[in-house]
């Protein structure tokens, strides 16, 4: 798998993402700069990492969506290329229109950094095929704007097409408001594109890929991608 990590001014989890990719593939990913107008030849996976691109002073991800590199990322996705957007990367994917909906301010109005439990709702994708259907995984969140919003028709369509990848649940798998760390519609924490090759999610599986980080529940996502795109 040839993976690249995109760096915008203000991106800050590129090292976390690169380390997780390296753990899964044994190789360092390439780094692509926001002003680059094309991706390296042969790119299989584009990872849009967490952070505060352009300071997120306008609307999270809005400025990054207009950057030169995103034209190339969009073309890559339209060719069927794989794209993973985590946290700010998910916000960028929604602003770009590669995924539907938007990420609003957390219902608590506060930034929240803690481990959450996700239920794997969909294993039919190159990102989630390493998990069992309904498996509960523990991964960290760290965001102020992760409250997923879309209109009811869009939400119904996402559910109907099996494009809800992850939902916030309790440790024992209940989909209840207490488990919903940011107030997201229907406890949704990650969604897939129509062709299932673009995933956006708020939590950080990359920060749970090493036993010394306290948990390795995020690692199967990276190893699954590496196998699928080998």
């Amino acid at each position: 798998m040839k993976a690249v990590v995109v760096v915008f001014p203000g991106t800050n989890r590129e090292m976390d993402a690169a380390a997780a990719l390296q753990r899964a593939t044994g190789r360092k990913p390439g780094i692509v700069w926001h002003r680059d107008t094309e991706l390296p030849a042969g790119t299989d996976l584009v990872l849009l990492p967490g952070g505060f691109s352009y300071g997120d002073y306008l609307r999270c991800g809005a400025m990054a969506a207009l950057s030169p590199v995103m034209r190339a990322v969009k073309a890559h996705a339209e060719r069927g290329g794989a794209v993973l957007g985590i946290c700010n990367g998910f916000q960028v994917l929604c602003e770009t229109g590669l995924l539907p909906g938007a990420l609003l301010r957390n219902a608590s109005l506060k930034f929240v950094c803690k481990d959450v439990f996700l239920r794997v709702e969909e294993t039919q994708s190159l990102f989630t095929r390493g998990y069992r259907q309904g498996q509960i995984i523990r991964v960290p969140t760290a965001h102020g704007d992760g409250n997923y919003f879309a209109d009811e028709a869009t939400l119904d369509r996402l559910e109907g097409e099996g494009r809800v990848a992850f939902r916030y649940v309790t440790a024992d798998g209940r989909t209840v408001p207490e488990a919903n760390v940011n107030g997201a519609a229907r406890n949704i924490s990650g969604i897939l594109s129509g062709n299932r090759r673009v995933l956006g999610m708020m939590p950080h599986p990359e920060d749970h890929t090493d036993p010394l980080q306290g948990c390795t529940d995020g690692l199967p996502m990276f190893t699954a991608m590496a196998e699928a795109l080998a």
Binding site: N12, R13, M15, D16, A19, A20, G50, K110, F111, V112, C113, K114, P140, A142, H204, E206, D207, D210, L212, Q213, G214
Partner: peptide
Amino acid sequence: IYEQYDHLVMGETIKRPAAADAAIVR
């Protein structure tokens, strides 16, 4: 308090807030 601070970014926080008497960063 500490859940409002990103205490995990960089991916090297080995002992998080309240886990040990001192924080450990790899």
